[in-house]
Amino acid sequence: MPRILITGSTDGLGRAAALSLLEDGHEVVVHARTEGRLTAADDLIGSGARSVIGNLANLDEVHDLARQANAIGVMDAVIHNAGVINGPVLAVNVVAPYLLTAALDRPGRLIYLSSSMHRGGSPDLTGADWGGDDGRHSYSDSKLFVTALMAAVAERWEGTIAHAVDPGWVPTRMGGPSASDDLRLGHVTQAWLAVSDDPEALTTGRYWHHQRVETPHPAVYDTGFQEQLLEELAEHTGVGLPTRGR
Rank of each mutant, 00 (worst) to 15 (best):
A179H: 03
A77R: 01
G135R: 12
G48M: 09
V30I: 11
I79W: 00
M117I: 08
H31W: 10
A201G: 04
V165H: 01
A102G: 08
L144Q: 02
P177I: 09
D181W: 00
T189Y: 12
V239E: 14
G238T: 07
P107W: 02
I4V: 15
S122G: 07
V95Y: 05
A41P: 09
P2D: 13
R15M: 06
D166N: 15
E200H: 12
E214R: 15
A164R: 08
R246S: 15
H209G: 01
V89A: 03
D11S: 14
V165D: 09
S115T: 08
V74I: 12
S178F: 11
P123K: 02
V92K: 03
L144R: 02
A40N: 13
E232T: 12
T237L: 06
I53S: 03
T126I: 04
R119I: 06
E35I: 07
R212S: 15
V84T: 11
N70S: 11
T101G: 11
H137W: 12
R156Q: 13
A41V: 06
G108C: 04
R67L: 12
L13F: 08
P123S: 06
Y139P: 05
G131Y: 06
R173G: 15
A148L: 07
A179C: 04
A82G: 12
T7D: 06
E235W: 10
R50L: 07
R3N: 09
A164N: 05
L183G: 08
G159A: 13
V30N: 03
A191N: 02
T223W: 06
R119C: 07
G205A: 03
Y112H: 15
G132S: 11
F145M: 03
A201H: 00
E155N: 14
I45R: 15
E214Y: 14
A234Y: 10
P2F: 12
P177M: 07
N55L: 07
I4K: 05
G135M: 14
S116M: 13
V52F: 12
E61D: 13
R184V: 04
L229M: 02
A77F: 06
S196T: 00
G25V: 13
S138I: 05
V62I: 07
